[in-house]
Design a protein around this nucleic acid. Sequence first.
DNA 1: GTTCCGTTTCAACAGATGTTGAAAAATAGA
DNA 2: TCTATTTTTCAACATCTGTTGAAACGGAAC
Lengths: 235, 235
Amino acid sequence: MRTKTPPPKADRRTAILDAAEAEFSAHGFDGVTLRTIAKRAGVDLALPNYYFGPKKQLFDAVFIRRAEIVNLWREEALKAAIEAASPQPPTVEAIIRAYLEPMLTGPHLEDQGWKNYYALVAYVNNSPGWGGRLMADHFDPLIRQFLDALRLALPGMDEKDLYWGYQCFSGALTLALAQTGRIDHLSGGVCRSDDLADACEHMVHFITGGFEAARRAAPAAVTAPPPKRRASKNS
Amino acid sequence: MRTKTPPPKADRRTAILDAAEAEFSAHGFDGVTLRTIAKRAGVDLALPNYYFGPKKQLFDAVFIRRAEIVNLWREEALKAAIEAASPQPPTVEAIIRAYLEPMLTGPHLEDQGWKNYYALVAYVNNSPGWGGRLMADHFDPLIRQFLDALRLALPGMDEKDLYWGYQCFSGALTLALAQTGRIDHLSGGVCRSDDLADACEHMVHFITGGFEAARRAAPAAVTAPPPKRRASKNS
DNA sequence: GTTCCGTTTCAACAGATGTTGAAAAATAGA
DNA sequence: TCTATTTTTCAACATCTGTTGAAACGGAAC
């Protein structure tokens, strides 16, 4: 009943990747069965294993497929921002835009596959354990390039502030990528979480302001500053 | 072999909740079996079902247990901030602190159960579908109180900017709650994702600056502003 | 045609999964 | 002590899970 159109003859490999992408992004790794993926792709149960090996390797293949593409986009955007501002370092806003816009704006967003992939990235980034390994292996090199650019754009910023700032940035982006629809419900329809371009434009300002405030507010605290505490709280 | 200490006689109910909390937060709903939970809690396989019904209801019970507590903490902190600033509205920073500090600072963090619960909240908040329902049912009322406070602290701010700002805020908090350890790896140990108090103090400045910049930068754009686009990008 | 090789199907496996009903044990009330 | 109620154990169920090996199919080379 859900067997889509009869399989398009060839191209079964990418049909499996697309189906797995949609299912994994919606239900997580353990919430998906190979039978569901095969049925959605319109192929036999044994075919995913034939092409990709065990389930975990199929998941990795889905994750890696578009990671390389989006990394190229972002690297190119960062280089362009640096070149456009040369010999000055680019502004914080220009760096944030180079980080976000290649992902969140552009005609590729009309492809539901890309939206599914972004939700998958959000899932991976929030998964403890093996999720961190996947993210680190495929995104850390590029992230370090952006951190280097931010160091130049924010002279005198403490390293700790920079990393915590990136953590905030990454969290905001991750939740946007997840497209959970929660902001739709909360805002009564004013904001739509599937409008990634809108999310992008607002994030640019918010995150830029966050980084600049984080540098300004640096209280030269060395370790963990204990703020005011309430009277009691049960353990 | 993993049967912990012999069951502490009574208190099997909370032993099941604790075990389920630890397992669900680490592996998600579908990544956990009732047998794993029962073994970790040191009880019989059939006992979780006896107390909580089917698996999904056990998950909900885990989620709800501490939600009510943390909501009370945060509501109390917001009221205190409002009262302390009266008759003026509290500052943005005071509101952000009231939102974050009850969760992220205090002696309850020495209880690993609370850290597990926070990771569970992060998991739920990033789960599409049923996750959003759980969050909305148990956290939206309090969130609306904070949004009301922010409206007073940020006069003239556009509603859309406010909601997208909260989305950034929520994303940053969610990733902090997840404690994935990714920031540890990325920063080479400078930041530790299990140091929630440190994350809190940095988030306060970053998010406060983000909200204030979001108000400042409001370009009176009506819908989705299409920023500059690169030459071509495959679909 | 015949052979060969990459692809696809089919059927089945061994094990795990959520759930349940009935028996057994513990607890409380009289 | 006997009874009634709650709690715990045990064993099993029907179903689903990832994976695999062998057979069947496809088309191209000879």
